[in-house]
């Protein structure tokens, strides 16, 4: 449907404050699904609000479908927004909450059309039995589903979603993840999405943007962000267990680039053997996660975490040997060094 493009967008809430969004440029192609990652306060919500028009950019320009919308009001931008706090209309029923966006005079729809759409969305989100409830008589998860539903009843140019699945239980979250992905696929919807959840980011995104203190530090496919991060900061955002950061000389590896200050070793870069040529280490603790296990290792006074399968023969306290293959190299400023 639509392409979203940000060009050097900067936003400060007060002139004295540091920029909440700092010179961000990105292009989300038509039908793309971009996920913004970053710790709290990185500027994810602000970025969405800028695209929605709920905040005005101090500088830079925002395009939706090649139309410069930088100065436009939210109502003319043709976007929907799933807010981080559910932001339902508390005095209306679930049905009326879902029907609200459809009843805009600008796009009058017949009563039966409204009802059809509301019912379909309610079924998709498994809340048809709650349609008559007041919005305040819902659990947190139900409120969030209504909030998502309110975005889905319309077919806007761009869907903006701010941590929409965060307060749902694991099962429903997995279902809705698939559902959203399906909707995006079926409708060819363009979605800009904020999450803390790595699985959501990895499975749903066609692009991931990593924000740090308002700056977009890397924007690329999930694969690029995971396998080819530009910095330690980006590398730390994805991967469970988190990437291990090691001194250069801790473990021998053939492919260390000159100038390397720290080595980033993901679990797949580590090879654990009972004996052999590697550096000697010890299993400190094993966390059984059901389908797999986290191994907490100690090598020459450094803690590492690695992944093993559920029925690993290793026991706590066992001696192991560790080798490294093709790890990531980072300079002293935390930037990635590439060959």
């Amino acid at each position: 449907m639509s392409e979203v493009r940000l060009e050097g967008v900067t936003k400060r809430y007060t002139p004295a404050a540091s920029a909440a969004v700092d010179d961000v440029s990105l292009t989300l192609t038509d039908g793309g699904f971009a996920v913004l990652l970053g710790p709290t306060g990185a500027g994810k919500t602000t970025t969405l609000r800028l695209v929605a028009g709920l905040e005005k950019a101090d500088s830079g320009r925002i395009f939706i479908d090649d139309r410069d919308v930088t100065q436009e009001a939210p109502s003319t931008r043709d976007v929907t927004f799933v807010f981080q706090q559910y932001s339902l209309y508390p005095h209306l029923t679930v049905y009326d909450n879902l029907a609200f966006p459809l009843r805009s005079p600008a796009r009058r729809q017949s009563k039966s059309e409204v009802e059809k759409r509301v019912t379909r969305v309610a079924e998709m989100l498994r809340i048809p039995h709650k349609l008559k409830n007041k919005a305040t008589q819902l659990s947190g998860g139900e409120m969030q589903r209504v909030a998502i539903g309110r975005a889905l009843v319309r077919s806007p140019s761009v869907y903006l979603m701010d941590e929409p699945l965060s307060s749902l239980d694991a099962k429903l979250r997995a279902e809705l993840r698939l559902e959203l992905k399906r909707i995006q696929h079926d409708l060819g919807a363009t979605i800009l999405y904020v999450t803390h959840d790595q699985v959501e980011a990895m499975t749903m995104a066609s692009r991931i943007g990593v924000l740090s203190e308002g700056k977009l530090v890397q924007f690329g496919t999930p694969r690029q962000i995971y396998e080819d991060p530009d910095s330690i900061y980006v590398a730390e955002r994805l991967g469970t267990p988190q990437i291990n950061l090691l001194p250069v000389d801790l473990l021998p590896s053939g492919a260390i680039l000159p100038g390397t200050a720290r080595i980033g070793a993901r679990t797949e870069h580590l090879r654990i053997e009972a004996d052999g040529s590697g550096v000697e280490g010890r299993v400190v603790r094993i966390e059984h996660l059901g389908d797999q296990s986290h191994l907490h290792l100690e090598v020459a006074g450094h803690a590492l975490t690695a992944l093993a399968d559920a029925h690993t023969p290793l026991a706590e306290g066992a001696a192991i040997r560790l080798t490294l293959s093709e790890p990531l190299c980072f300079g002293s400023d935390g930037r990635r060094l590439r060959a």
Partner: peptide, 13 residues
Amino acid sequence: DYIYEAAEVDRAS
């Protein structure tokens, strides 16, 4: 405020 923001995005005049 967020209720008005939601309404704004929902294109309510």
